Amino acid sequence: MNLALAVLVLVTLERLAELWLARRNTERLIARGGMEVAPEHYPLIVALHAAWLGGLWWLGWDQTVHFGWLAVFVGLQFLRAWVLATLGKRWTTRIIIVPGEALVRAGPYRFLSHPNYAVVIGEIAVLPLVFGLPWYALAFSALNALVLVIRIRAENTALASKRARSLR
């Protein structure tokens, strides 16, 4: 197996594991009274990420791996792990609000409001660069920016509503 193929296999396995974890956590949060907010844009997020990874399989599986960019991508995985560890059972790919729970302000959330999205921005740009695909990185970064505008607006609205309810 060549290195590019190995990287794609590992990233795909990581994404599948994250989807499993997100689904499990979502079910637990809903069981505890959580409510999903703004689910209508979720299929767009799934489609974007599936197209991004699928396209990388199509274009990148036999490319030369650029080790500098691979190191950056590995660094992003450590940041992703920090986000997941900080949120624990509250991490999901959906926007779930659980009444009565305080917002997380530990870990990377001390520094950024949306550290997971910062990691995703980096991943969508950097992984194509690992395979020498700068135009692919640019195209999907632009598409991701459009999706994140929708997503972050919805999440911020939900979180502002949660804060307002907790102040009453």
Rank of each mutant, 00 (worst) to 15 (best):
L148I: 02
G122C: 04
I150V: 14
N156L: 13
L143M: 13
Y136T: 07
I152D: 06
V147D: 02
L138E: 12
L146E: 06
Y117C: 09
L112V: 09
Y136K: 08
W135S: 01
A145R: 11
V126C: 03
A118F: 10
V147N: 05
I152N: 09
A154W: 13
A145Q: 05
G122T: 02
Y117V: 15
A145Y: 11
G132Y: 01
R151E: 06
V149D: 10
L148W: 03
F111Q: 12
L129A: 04
V120Y: 08
S141P: 06
L146G: 14
P128H: 01
I150C: 10
R151S: 04
G122H: 03
W135H: 00
L133V: 10
V130F: 04
A158G: 11
L129E: 01
N116Q: 13
A125V: 09
L133G: 09
L146D: 10
L129Q: 02
E123H: 02
I152T: 10
A154P: 08
P115Y: 05
F140V: 04
L138G: 12
G132Q: 01
I124E: 09
P115Q: 09
Y136V: 08
I124K: 07
F140K: 04
L127A: 00
L129F: 04
V130T: 01
V126F: 03
L129R: 00
A118C: 07
E123N: 01
L127I: 00
L129T: 02
Y136H: 03
H114P: 09
R151Y: 05
V119I: 05
A154E: 11
E155Y: 12
T157N: 14
P134L: 10
L127V: 00
F140I: 04
A142S: 09
I152Q: 08
L133A: 13
Y117H: 15
F131N: 05
S113L: 13
V119P: 03
L112K: 07
R153C: 10
I150A: 14
P128N: 00
N156H: 13
N116A: 15
F131H: 03
V120G: 05
I152P: 05
Y136Q: 04
I150D: 14
L138V: 15
I121Y: 07
A145E: 10
V147P: 01
S113C: 12
I121C: 08
I152C: 06
P128F: 00
V130R: 00
F140A: 08
V130L: 05
A125E: 05
G132T: 00
F131D: 07
E123Q: 04
Y117E: 09
Y136E: 06
P128Q: 01
G122N: 03
A154N: 14
A137N: 05
A142V: 15
A154M: 12
V119D: 02
G132E: 00
V120T: 11
I150G: 14
